[in-house]
Amino acid sequence: MKVTIDEDKCCGAGSCVLLAPEVFDQREDDGIVILLDAEPGEDRHAVVREAAAVCPGAAIAVSE
């Protein structure tokens, strides 16, 4: 799995961090998403897909 983020679309909601703190974090100053793990392991695929689904900025993309 490959995860990509579009910082420009991120609104700093932090929904992704709430779901998958091992994969996403937020910058201290403006809350924009930080991708901690662009190729998360199998055990995290479901939760990362869900993070992409609930992201209110449609800022997270997942490819196989």
């Binding site: 700093g12 909601a13 932090g14 961090v17 709430l18 937020q26 910058r27 201290e28 403006d30 809350g31």
Partner: peptide, 10 residues
Amino acid sequence: LGWNMPKQAR
């Protein structure tokens, strides 16, 4: 509420 503090608010 966060005012220019998204991460802290979360």
